[in-house]
Design a binder for these strands. Structure first.
Lengths: 219, 219
DNA sequence: GCACTGACCGATCAATCGGTCAGCGCATTC
DNA sequence: GAATGCGCTGACCGATTGATCGGTCAGTGC
């Protein structure tokens, strides 16, 4: 299925437009994508895109909001499902990393919004969604700290920002690693394990055993 | 000095072009900047930009390479100047954060390159510069680890990537924090101190006293 | 005085941009 | 079977894009 050939097979045009826009915006950003590109990849006419979305910005906002809400819901579901507060963070980091790898377009879009142009974030409809997502993670970390898992002086906001930020940043710099000799021999799984190890050593209340290799237990 | 008025006062046109391009590319990215914008801000004709740089990409590469090399040299100078290996990392984190705040255009350009489009990084002249920068930091961390400051199983590559990545990511998300209620009461300095604390607790060899507040000593 | 160079400019190019518009085909409804 | 509404299209618009053009001008070496 070459990408230049329209593929209207059964899928509604609206969904094809949103799908194509998600892929293209993720890859090249708002300014780097032309509506004609979206239309071509979706197999529809350019005017049809403007039939479903009033402006290019509206299409971008719709795609972005959808990705952010999907990520927020998945995070909430996963954090709520983990019963043991001591395993919540390390298990989350592994799952979060896998999720970002499995949904590269979502990861890229959210990343671009979080670190992108000022005018996009402050007025658009996406900031409340991201804020709720972050506050949610902060609440879970605070609960784990109050349960005695983390040091009392470990700030839940800082810990949450590290959890979300480092893994997200890592997913967006992964393509650079094969080009740098220092990274030779460090796989993605190894990196996540060692990151989890450093973070947990840095925030946990007592010096228990190491947390390396959590990828292979209780899953 | 309004930005619409050309200001050729004494500064050569080439420098004004590069300066304007650095500011604009940092703020809006490659696709978001028009050569006419650069020319207007530099107070020169658009054709003059193409007289000094063959293509828009060549101008972008020149600006980017200059920023990356400047950052690399400053990092090397600062790391080499710190004699005590135990204080090298915490002092570096504070200095690095301050540097990124003081040079927002450099921070944004480097950040965009590190996390940006795949095709820009792999073929351009910037990757070797960044690779050398990173390997340099890795070497310093490895030396500190071999001196007994860090745990023997702390991977210098992972530690270096955390040092450089978290602070850089933090500088690019700082504009979002005032809009999120969880961040209320956490200043930039507080954040850097707590980040340093978590990182140092996570990697250091022995459990000594906390490393908070390093901003106010030996400077 | 002459030849030459490089910095610089106004005008202009074809291509592409986001967006508009009249109208087509088709299913539903009265 | 006429009318309505909707999804959709090709043709088109003015504006802007990166890039090129012929040409001006100050300076330099001889």
């Amino acid at each position: 299925m070459p990408d230049t050939v329209p593929s209207p097979g059964g899928v509604p045009a609206l969904d094809r437009i949103v799908g194509a826009a998600e892929r293209l915006f993720a890859g090249r950003g708002f300014d780097g994508v032309a509506i004609s590109d979206v239309a071509r990849q979706a197999g529809v006419c350019k005017a049809n895109v403007f039939h479903h979305f009033a402006t290019k910005q509206a299409l971008y906002d719709a795609v972005l909001t959808r990705s952010c809400e999907a990520l927020g819901e998945e995070i909430e579901r996963h954090l709520s499902a983990e019963a043991d507060p001591a395993l919540q963070v390390p298990h989350f980091l592994v799952w979060y990393h896998d999720y970002l790898c499995a949904h590269p377009a979502t990861a890229r879009l959210v990343f671009r919004e979080v670190t992108g142009n000022p005018d996009l974030a402050e007025s658009g409809p996406v900031l409340p969604v991201l804020s709720r997502l972050f506050d949610n993670v902060v609440a879970h970390v605070r609960a784990a700290r109050d349960a005695g898992v983390f040091r009392a002086d470990a700030d839940p906001t800082v810990v949450a920002s590290l959890m979300l930020g480092v893994t997200l940043f890592n997913s967006q710099t992964a393509r650079l690693r094969p080009h740098m000799p220092s990274w030779r021999g460090i796989s993605d799984e190894t990196y996540v394990d060692r990151l989890t190890d450093v973070l947990m050593r840095g925030v946990r209340a007592v010096d228990a055993n190491a947390v390396s290799g959590i990828r292979n237990d209780t899953t």
